[in-house]
């Protein structure tokens, strides 16, 4: 799956974040969501969707090689991860997320829950060309 985000369609409702937390953590807890919505107010007065584009910065900087690409998605191996949070610091989108109540970070695995729920069509998942 390849995500496409259309910032201009986002209305900042945050439904995507709640659906993400419910899908991935079985929790009504948007603080755990693996994407960010940034409201830029009062100026320029818009929303930016920050979404993992699988750039690999997290994997490149992980000191214990706990993050690796599997089927087009970088995943954190909880057995190897030491919780140093280096990946959280280097993530250019700010979507490697330190999890409340957990010592390990988490990241988007392209489950598509956000795109499925988004009422504005601002996040769209398409079949990847090179999956």
């Amino acid at each position: 799956m390849t995500p496409t985000v259309i910032h201009e369609k986002c209305s900042g409702c945050g439904t995507c974040k709640l659906a993400c937390a419910m899908e991935n953590f079985s929790a009504v807890q948007p603080a755990r969501a693996l994407l960010r919505i940034e409201g830029r107010f009062p100026a320029p007065g818009d929303y930016q969707i920050h979404f993992c584009d699988q750039c690999g910065e997290c994997a490149d900087n992980c000191p214990v090689d706990a993050i690796a690409m599997e089927a087009g998605v970088y995943r954190v191996d909880p057995d190897l991860c030491t919780g140093c949070m280096t990946c959280v610091e280097v993530c250019p989108k700010g979507v490697m997320v330190e999890q409340p109540g957990s010592e390990l970070p988490a990241k988007c695995i392209l489950c598509g829950a956000c795109a499925e729920i988004c009422p504005r069509g601002a996040i769209v998942m398409t079949e990847s060309m090179h999956a």
Binding site: C10, S11, T15, G45, D46, R120
Partner: peptide, 13 residues
């Protein structure tokens, strides 16, 4: 108008 602006979890901003 610049953008639609919705309340929390609102599908109809």
């Amino acid at each position: 108008k610049i953008t639609d602006k919705g309340c929390y979890c609102c599908p109809t901003p």
